[in-house]
Each structure stands twice: as structure tokens, then as C-alpha cells.
Design a protein around this nucleic acid. Structure first.
Lengths: 282, 282
DNA sequence: ACCTGTGAAGGACTTCACAGCG
DNA sequence: CGCTGTGAAGTCCTTCACAGGT
């Protein structure tokens, strides 16, 4: 999403449609619209599929071959009904009374998310974050290899970061075409972000991950997802403020549920994993 | 979001409720539930308020004193009806026929988001991302100062990063208490994340920003927001795949809208800004 | 005239709950 | 008997459209 999330999300709470004038369906009875040619998977479900995929990869590595909706759901942090519905959007690959075969699900989710095609990423803005991204090298499973780096700083030109030499932003069109870049990650300060984005679009890049605190204007065929740390922190801030404002909830009678467990199901995610974060040093 | 573009999309897809058993209202007519004591602002609206705040700060700097819902909305990438509804959740601070006073709105949004209280942030995991976060110093307006850094690596102990010396993760409880930390940003590899999170919770931190590719298990009084780059990229991937699968939409008759403008309203966001991204070098 | 604030309609996503298959 | 897959109900969010100030 992000979303959404940017959920988004988130993000999230996360969608960018604003530019296009919408069709406005004809009057009268609300017709189903013959527009759903392919399976239309809810945006929110797509984001979760990516999460399930990560969890499933962890399971595969632990040689787990079968998993129930309940298990998978709790490891992914959702409830099982939601998980089953999400999976139902991509087809019926479970076995009633048993569960899902891990390998099969992985394959189907990868296919749905378009991970059979490899996406090559360009990072623009080689500051602290740019470095982090450039070194992010191996993503969970099928990688999103970083294949180009750009900056304005003359001192950086040609300097290799994470094994890739930095090019000048003016070369974005040429280099992106040569290296078949499909995703651009904008990690510049706010000021230069729209300009960089325009160049990426010009170069034919149709997916942008924006870390700059700016709302990018793009033609509608381009998909932008935004990651904004300040926004995330402000949302956290809101929730704390809200909680301290709303002191003690008078004990709800008739439901003595509490003694919240601190950590359950802490195995699946924490297992032996090559699923390294984006951090390099421990 | 995830959401794509803005909300993430995100995200959107970002919430962590699973543990608690819900009350199940009594049978019969669905009662409104007397549960909405304080103004309950939709989660989705909160995320956008943070975005409006950033745009408004930019306007304030440009000495703009008044703004209409239409202007503010387009700068924030949402439609004006949504913006007005969002603002209505925090009260009526506009003037009909005129618009909103920038300074007033900023104040009200800050109050709503709890930004009157300052939040001190601890970063755990001083790798590439950790460095980026530590140097992120000044957030848009009211800062979220980074006040503590932690890692496992003995070589890093005491080394200052962004002006703050690194402490050992074993000291999280003590240091967090001493420095009154309210937000923890987990930038460790997946393996150590849950452990670090448990220590933060133990230290009384109730807000966590999680960058590790793991679903953290926390007691319900703790709020977790997750930022997962791999997930964001996979969502982008899904949208590209989908578009190339669904070739040409046969020209929709009766609606010749197109010629999408590449960039409109590119001023507000790009203005002279101290709103530096998290990148240090240009 | 213009723009805000908001009820009401509409749409999207979530949860329930159970039929149906292994 | 357990677990998946899914209509139906419910909840949350968005968009419409207009009443009501200025």
C-alpha cells in the first residue's frame, strides 16, 4: 500500500487516486459493472498476501510442508477468516480438513504478485537512507535487485555503493533504459523529489517508492507508494495521546478476559532466517 | 494503500488487533454501543491529518495565511470532500466562503495528534537504516528527537552516531527510563526483533515502529506500526503485473477524458523547505 | 457568489457462521 | 470430525450533494 500501508498502509491506509475523473455509472439500478475482467483482489488483501508470503517462506525453510489457516493467520497477525478470504481471491489451493500445502501457496502468491518477473530497482539520493537501500541487496525471496544508483553530488559519481557505481541524475533516462529498471526508490530531500520523479516517469519507470515527504504528482499509469516516517510517528503519537486522555475504562462487567500473553507464536517468524532486515551490522 | 500511493496505501493495511476476545453485544436490535466516549477519529483520517500538517507547515513558511479545502486537498493528494470531513472530526475551524486559517489549523492538528507532548525516540539496531534514522534529526515540525541508540555489537558501544553514543541492548530498560523514551524504532534484523521489542515493552515503551520483517507480538496496550520495504515493493509489483495482464481497455465510449497532466500544483510541496527528508547528502 | 460542514448514500473491507468436502 | 471456502451481515470509510454561513 501504503498504503497504504501507506496499510499502508498502510497504508494502509494507502491509496493514490485523485487525478482521474471517474466514470459515474448510469442511473437506475446499480449494475455490477462488467469491469472486473481479471480477478479483482482488494487492495488491502494484496498487502497481506505479501505478508503471508514472508511467513510461508519462513515455514518452508523450517521444512514445514502443511499449515492450517489458523496457524498461518496467527503468525501473520490477522484472523483466520480474513486469511481464508484473502486466499480465496487467488483460488482454492487448500485441502479441507487438512490445510494448505506451503509450497503450493508460495507459488500461487508469487504468481499473483507478479514475482515471477524480476524487478530491477534504482535508488535516487545516496544519503543515509540511500545507502541503506543500496545495501538492502537480498530481499526475502525473489529479490528486487538494486541495479542503479543516482545522486547530484559530483563527489559521488562513479563511487561504488553496495557494489554499484553512482550515476548522475541527469543520466536517469539513459541508465534506466539500459538496465531495464522497473522500480524507482526516491530517497532525496523533499526539494528534488518531484523533479527526480518526473525524470523516472520520462524514463518509462511506472512504479515509484517515495521516501521524500512530498506528495508526488504523476500520470495515472504510474503507481506511487509512500513511506513517511514522520507520519508514522505522528500516528503513534496520536494513539498515546488518546490513551492517556481516556484514563481507566471502567471494568467491563461479565468478561474477565485478561492477563495478556506477552508473546505467543514466537517461533515461525524468528526461526533460522536469511530474511535479513535492511540492517547490515547486527 | 497502500495502498498505494498515499494512504499506503498503504496502508492501510496496518493494524494489530488480534489478541483480545471481543464482547459480543446482546441480542436483538443492534445498539449504537456507548463506547464512543471521546471523539473517535477514523484511523484513516488520522494518517491524513499528519499529511495535512506537513503541507500546512510548508504553506506557513511561504507566509500563506489562508487556504481553501480545495487547495489544501490537492496539495495533499486527496479530494476536498474527504479533507473537509477529516477536518470536521477535529472541530470547525474554517470560515465559510473563505477557507481555513493556516496557523489555526496547524495548532488544532498538532493538538489532536498529541504533538504538544514531545516524544523521544530510541533506535535499536545501528546498521545502515539505524544510521539513517539516527541522523534523521529534525523531523518536519515539532521534532521527534532521537535520544538513545542501541546495538549488540561491542565495537559500537560508546561510539557516537549522529551525536548520540550507542548503548548495549541489555541496557534498554535503564537507559529508556533515564531518558524518558516513548517511541522505539526497531531496525534490527528479523532474528532479534521480538527480543528487542520485549525489552522495550518491559522498559515501558508503548509505541513501536518496526522495520524488521517480523510480526511482533505485544500486549494490547502497545501500539505497533510496521514499515516493510519488501512488502511495499511486492505491492508495486502486483500492480505492474496486473496492468500488463489487462492489455488495452477498449475505449470507453462517452467519456473522452484524458491527456493527464504530468504535474500540477507542484509548488506547495516543493517550496523552500527545512522539511528535509531523512537523507543527508543531496 | 463562494466555501465550509455534514447527513445520507454508496462502496470497500471485515467478520460471522455454516455448508460442504476430505 | 476438522478445516476450507464463501454467502450474508456488519462495520468502517468515502463520496455525494446541499443546507447554511459570510
Amino acid at each position: 500500500m501504503t498504503a497504504h500501508g501507506e496499510g499502508v498502509r498502510d497504508d494502509g491506509p494507502r491509496d493514490a487516486d485523485e487525478t482521474a475523473a471517474q466514470p459515474r455509472p448510469a442511473e437506475g439500478i446499480t449494475v455490477p459493472e462488467p469491469q472486473d475482467r481479471a480477478r479483482s483482489i482488494p487492495e488491502a488483501a494484496v498487502a497481506r498476501l505479501a505478508v503471508y508470503l514472508r511467513v510461508l517462506s519462513g515455514l518452508a525453510e523450517q521444512e514445514v510442508h502443511t499449515v492450517s489457516s489458523e496457524e498461518l493467520a496467527s503468525a501473520a497477525g490477522v484472523n483466520s477468516a480474513k486469511l481464508r478470504k484473502d486466499l480465496s481471491y487467488i483460488g482454492s489451493y487448500g485441502t479441507r480438513g487438512v490445510g494448505y500445502e506451503v509450497a503450493v501457496l508460495i507459488g500461487q502468491i508469487e504468481r499473483t504478485l507478479g514475482l515471477t518477473q524480476q524487478h530491477r530497482v534504482a535508488v535516487i539520493g545516496i544519503g543515509n537512507l540511500g545507502h541503506a537501500l543500496a545495501n538492502y541487496g537480498g530481499f526475502p525471496n525473489r529479490g528486487f535487485p538494486v541495479a542503479a544508483l543516482f545522486d547530484l553530488d559530483p563527489d559521488l559519481m562513479g563511487v561504488p555503493v553496495g557494489g554499484i557505481p553512482v550515476d548522475h541524475v541527469d543520466d536517469i533516462p539513459r541508465v534506466c533504459a539500459e538496465r531495464d529498471i522497473t522500480i524507482g526508490a526516491i530517497a532525496t530531500p523533499a526539494k528534488g523529489a518531484q523533479d527526480v520523479c518526473d525524470r523516472l516517469v520520462q524514463a518509462g519507470v511506472r512504479c515509484v517508492l517515495n521516501f521524500a515527504p512530498v506528495v508526488l504528482q504523476v500520470p495515472e499509469e504510474v503507481e506511487v507508494r509512500k513511506v513517511d516516517l514522520a507520519v508514522e510517528m505522528q500516528i503513534l503519537s496520536f494513539h498515546v495521546a488518546r490513551r492517556s486522555q481516556e484514563p481507566q475504562e471502567s471494568g467491563d462487567p461479565g468478561d474477565g478476559v485478561d492477563g495478556t500473553p506477552q508473546s505467543k507464536t514466537r517461533d515461525v517468524n524468528a526461526g533460522a532466517d536469511p530474511v535479513d532486515g535492511m540492517v547490515v551490522r547486527s
